[in-house]
Design a protein around this nucleic acid. Structure first.
Lengths: 230, 230
DNA sequence: GATGACGCTTGACATTTATCAAGCGGCCAG
DNA sequence: CTGGCCGCTTGATAAATGTCAAGCGTCATC
């Protein structure tokens, strides 16, 4: 555990208010691990050994039943994942795989639970982080329950446009098949959804998307503060 | 705020470890309110004034966009709801309405946030409660993303059968149209889903359902510990 | 430079789900 | 008792989405 890694952890809101001693105690036994792409990090039924901090690369959290599989969320640096599972001392509930070569800081879950018990400041940050995660899933749940596939894509593009802040010239951050899974549809259907959006100024060229009629796209997408915000 | 109401609060795991003084402080300004059926308690855009404790009746949390509406979850006594929103001091993110005449204990959200800041034991319980809520939504999200409408209904019936513990003779706890919305389908589609399940021993008579071929139903439903448990 | 794997797209078709319309039956108010 | 509302069901049809198969282009490897 190097100082540079400690600084990465410190930069996260979740750990920002921990005193140095407690942070050191929590990081004892932690290690930074490199993974190649397309590697399974854990399965949903595994016991939660570690809180993960994605330092570099990209990770997909997904679920599967009965030969079907679906992306639940994508993790980008720098962020923690599976906090809830680490805190309750049970199964991960979700599976994870790398989408790129990645560096992940692994913090023993037991250390995190101990910090929660003994460091009230940390417990408080954990509360806020968990509440944010909760609202994040609720938004995803509303999204898939209240919108059609085309609407989900349209709203996704609008969100990316705001995030990438690049005036209507987006680059998709993942392969289209992964995007399809995240948006709850098949790759074929995603292709067709893009076609459907063509009249609304959506021009596709590989992973580069141009949004040439933002107003029209918004009219179709009907974005909602309580689904798409943040 | 009567003693009997205080005892109700105490009985909830979330508040079980609070000392009496802190509990009294948090309950200051709280009140028990009675609502008739079909009343909107709050809308998703409202600021979160109160943590709610459903003492009697039934409440539906739902979301709407673009003239569509969907049930997110049902609350039954005795349980808190909108904890996450109360803790972060923002909008409710979900709307709520009573499905029956209900009694709800309203605890000022500011009191809850104060308790989180000042009572480490409470903060810790809040962490565990939020983590459980989080996994609850994740399960709902998996359910709708990985299963067809008929499978969702089949699994719902199996879960109800376990909960009601009544050997294959279930009573639906809500109107069918509400059940349909919760399962993410139209009432018409729910009717047809019940028909589809007839060969699997599902006999419908109003709100009374008999499951006469549990094994067959399970084979169809393929229940999963990480979607249906608890 | 050839080749084969792979991601994406497109077409044809099947399945799932929603929509619209009608009718049935219980239940409550007059 | 009776009329009308309302929840539920059923049928016909439309829309959304998935499946299967084929083909295309890119890219890494040989």
């Amino acid at each position: 555990m190097r100082d540079s890694e400690k600084e990465i952890v410190r930069s996260l809101p979740l750990f920002s208010s921990m005193c140095d001693d407690n942070l050191d105690a929590m990081l004892a036994g932690s290690f930074l691990q490199r993974f190649p792409t397309t590697v399974i990090l854990f399965s949903e039924s595994d016991l939660t050994d570690f809180l993960h901090v994605l330092v570099e690369g990209q990770v997909e959290l997904f679920a599967s039943t009965n030969n079907r599989e679906g992306t639940m969320t994508l993790i980008k640096p720098i962020a923690t994942f599976v906090l809830a599972s680490a805190l309750v001392d049970g199964a991960y509930q979700l599976s994870a795989r790398t989408l790129e070569a990645s560096q992940i800081l692994m913090i023993p879950a037991e250390n995190v639970r101990k910090a929660m018990r003994e460091d009230p400041d940390f417990a408080q940050k954990a509360v806020l982080e968990l509440a944010a995660c909760y609202h994040g899933v609720v938004r995803a749940y509303k999204n898939i329950k209240l919108r059609t596939a085309v609407e989900r894509l349209a709203n996704y593009l609008l969100v990316q446009n705001r995030r990438q802040n690049t005036k209507g010239a987006i680059t998709l951050p993942v392969e289209k098949r992964t995007l399809a899974s995240m948006l709850g549809m098949t790759p074929e259907n995603l292709s067709r959804a893009f076609s459907t959006l063509k009249p609304y100024g959506v021009a596709v060229e590989g992973a580069k998307i141009r949004l040439e009629k933002l107003d029209d796209l918004e009219t179709l997408a009907k974005p909602s503060e309580f689904i798409d915000s943040h």
